[in-house]
Amino acid sequence: MSGPLLRLDTISKTYRDVTAVHPLDLEVGRGDFLALLGPSGCGKTTLLRMIGGFLPPTTGRVEIEGRDVTALGPEKRNTNMVFQGYGLFPHMTVAQNIGYGPKIAGRDPEQIDLDVVRMLNLVHLNAVADRLPAALSGGQQQRVALARALVMRPAILLLDEPLAALDLKLRKAMQDELKALHKAIGGTFIFVTHDQGEAIDLANRIVIMEAGRIVQQGTPEDVYRRPASRFVASFVGDANMLPARRVGAEVAIGGGRLPAPGVDGDVLVVIRPDDVTLDATCPIGLDGTLAECRFMGPYQRLTVTLADGTQVIVHRPSGADAAPLPGVGDAVRLGLPPAACSVVAP
């Protein structure tokens, strides 16, 4: 089939006088693992719930597989959701939870049993099939919620902050599991998260939202390496932001020039701490003083104060072959590879 799997057309949501989502367009392709990333209150969950049919949009259309589903509720859509609190049925066993949807759909009982077993295998829950959700760990409950949604073979699986309730270690394990699951079944996943690390790790495409609008979308590398705004730069990963001026579509900084189309005026040059080098041969160089050096495990975190007082953070690998460091208080010259620099509005 041609065309996107999901198309949102000028979709928006307004509550009384508050606009949660401003009119926006979005297309999601088959097989995508898409992250809706943003701080709390940015409208990402509202957007997800409109895709799932739980909220009627104020304006716009939702199309799934080329069909207008705007007026349809979640029970009529070929989407399934993994809820933030999982929403497992507390009075049903794991197997009954997973079999609920197929049973409602009127599938053949023998087929349901096979499907349930297949799902239990997929999420490694065979051993607890007859337990009630209350007797499961958080990670197991999460997997039941996944299996319960996936057994419906949805065109799109929606996940609302799927890992937020898990502790760090479990979250990492579930990230791997989600990725493996996506690969195994080849489905289309859309998940909401406020955790940029999770988005970068899991998604092949990230949509960043701020105050009800999409501010940037692209591959994890795109949004990390080429942030389109100050907000994206600061929200996704750590960023150094150096004030500069744009004159004639160029920004002069540290003895070098960055091409930067746009009107003349104040701008910020954004560079990631791991892109800044101590390489004196770099075409863009900034002189400063090493103010602090901290050992962070896999890397060292240097703080360099420039002549104008701006502080620049530098991450350097802390492995055995790392070059020896200057001492605190010494003058250093920072190298900014032009390809790693982005210019954004202040």
């Binding site: 739980f54 029970e75 399934n80 809820f83 933030q84 929403g87 049925f89 409602i104 319960r148 949604a149």
Partner: peptide, 27 residues
């Protein structure tokens, strides 16, 4: 009451009466 349970049932295709009968009532 955990309304996510009702949302889940809806999401899995259940209508209002089925949700009441199979999810809300037993709970």
């Amino acid at each position: 009451f955990n309304m996510a349970v009702v949302d889940s049932a809806r999401d899995l295709g259940a209508g209002p009466w089925t949700i009441f009968r199979t999810v809300i009532l037993p709970i």
